[in-house]
Design a protein around this nucleic acid. Structure first.
Lengths: 355, 355
DNA sequence: CTGTTAGCGCTTTCAC
DNA sequence: GTGAAAGCGCTAACAG
């Protein structure tokens, strides 16, 4: 009782700041229980009179009461927060995935903690711990892809998790990625159909699924069209621009230069273009190019670039919805593996050698 | 005592999961206080024996104990979390800012809650409330820029806040942006120096500081060089690609076409290029172009584009460090307003009309 | 050098 | 219809 009085006095001095539900209850002359119930839309369940209910809502708004989500989280063991781990937020591919994930998460009442792993496994391990400590309700991760034990562990620890962009064969970790194999296959078939035989492939990080599958698609397309696979034409080891640049320079120094380059990421193709520009070579006249990852600028490059467009928005949305499903149903896994077939966007970066 | 026993039994069944500090203390046969102190590096302060200390640390690691940050946050009234509100995460300019902010925040022990406002003021208001409810320690916001009351309010509510990219004249909200005026001025002087007089300006959202300053820089550069400002050449109202496209189409239909276009964002210039490409016009032969925002692809466009490069990384890092300063010192504002002068990167998108 | 305990703001069980 | 009180996991004031 005394306490209530104190609260009321406190209120009079500082109208616009009720810092917790107790103070609010004090002004209303109600118990915290009742206030909490109304605020959580459970008025009906407890047959709280509509008039009380309205009074609570109105006052809450009036005094600008903001429920403390941290306290709520502690009690409910649920933070309404998702963690997102991405290898490089500045990469437009991941940036747009992050955007859609945030929007979709928010639509469902979740906030997003963003983490950039810099494509470094150690950082990734740390970040997963961090998110676990922060009690996120679930994690979406575009993993570096080398090493998966930390991911399996966190899944077994009971934290719902879905992997995007890359995946781990032989585990039951839910994933949703592009069908990288088919994408690469289509791209290379397209190049082959223009009469090319010496097609180089500049790859990204070796050993991760997305890369492996793309290379496999590349090889199989060659094989299907009876072109022997020349392993010396498969070069590189990183998805960054620098790798594209360096490998192109190296390729151009070969005795028998390739007539076409298949770049396994948007950044790689930018590096390819830089190397070509520097050496005065032009696309597609001197060398042809097809790249993974459509970008807003792809059409406006010196020569509009033929690309493979991943369905980023779908990947992101599905990831969120599947994750939320896992959270709500309290199921950790149910063999979810989705591969979305990418689209080949044909422009003008492949020269026809047949005519 | 009984309780401790129970905990120990619980432990034996499930070795690898101590869910709270009490359980951990129980196995160690220590009080939670001692354990907490050791875990928080305060062993020395309380002269806890090194052997105890070591035992605590070792056991904690062994049983895989992860402190619950939520509980900690509730107690400490500090979440070690920053909020970031950005108008469009998919925009590479903001994506790279977000990346640097996340990295810098993490380096300082903070996690980042990412929010995309879609350049919508209502969403922005909501997001600020959301972050306040989540008890973030501070907020970095690249505001839509229309309306500032919600931002002033949150600042007065005592939540440390810093604004990036745009700012609000006439308030004491700390901000850090590019010197948009100087950037635009430089760009337009560059165009003028090539003999252009009919220079169009395709602007972004009117009324926000970044846009206003850029337009002012544009105008002043003209004035300085005795070129009358033709207001019908200042067009557009959005930073997006579509606006660039539409306005260019309109400009091209004028009786007296401009000889150069100054685009106030990277997305706008992409729209300009699309319109030009469609109508068979080329840069810089038919029309010249300079754009705000350097991008990784700027150099590789059909004609390498002259751009104004904002110092994104510096902006992001300063934002984080200033914010953390405000948080730690418990100061809300101290008249921080920083403007970083952008750099003009000259390439080949402006034709010389003088020779 | 170590421990007991109150309490951060919230929800919910149980009681009336 | 409403309320008292326990307790989520943690830290720190106070007490030895």
């Amino acid at each position: 009782v005394l306490f209530k009085k104190i609260c009321i006095f406190a209120l009079m001095e500082n109208k616009k700041s009720v810092k917790n539900i107790r103070e609010l209850a004090a002004i209303l002359n109600l118990s915290v229980t009742t206030v909490s119930r109304v605020l959580n839309g459970k008025a009906d369940n407890y047959r709280i009179s509509p008039v009380t209910s309205k009074r609570v809502m109105d006052t809450a708004r009036e005094v600008n009461y903001l429920p403390n989500k941290i306290a709520r989280g502690l009690k409910l063991e649920r933070t309404d927060t998702l963690g997102l781990i991405i290898p490089d937020v500045a990469n437009p591919f991941f940036a747009s995935i992050a955007k859609t994930i945030e929007l979709e998460a928010r639509k469902n009442g979740y906030s997003l903690i963003l983490c950039d792993s810099l494509d470094d496994v150690d950082a990734e391990v740390e970040l997963i711990q961090l998110l676990a400590g922060r009690k996120v309700d679930g994690i979406i991760i575009a993993p570096v892809g080398l090493g998966k034990s930390h991911i399996v562990e966190i899944q077994q620890a009971g934290i719902p998790l879905v992997v995007v962009d890359r995946y781990f064969p032989g585990t039951n970790i839910p994933f949703i990625t592009s069908d990288n194999y088919k994408g690469a296959f289509k791209a290379v078939e397209h190049i082959i159909s223009h009469g090319h035989k010496a097609i180089a492939c500049i790859q990204g990080i070796r050993g991760i699924s997305a890369n492996t599958e793309r290379v496999k698609g590349y090889e199989d397309a060659l094989v299907k069209h009876h072109i022997p696979v020349d392993h010396s034409l498969i070069v590189g080891d990183d998805f960054g621009e620098e790798n594209g640049y360096i490998q192109t320079r190296v390729l151009l120094n070969r005795k028998n230069k390739p007539t076409a380059i298949f770049a396994l990421s948007n950044l790689i193709s930018l590096g390819v273009i830089r190397a070509l520009t520097e050496t005065g070579l032009s696309i597609p006249d001197d060398i042809s190019l097809v790249s993974f990852d459509e970008q807003p600028y792809s059409a406006y490059l010196a020569s509009p670039m033929t690309t493979i467009e991943q369905r980023r928005e779908e990947i992101a949305k599905m990831a969120v919805n599947i994750l939320i499903g896992l959270i709500r149903k309290d199921k950790i896994q149910e063999n979810i593996n989705i591969m979305l077939e990418p689209r080949l966007i044909i422009r003008n970066s492949v020269k026809s050698l047949t005519k």
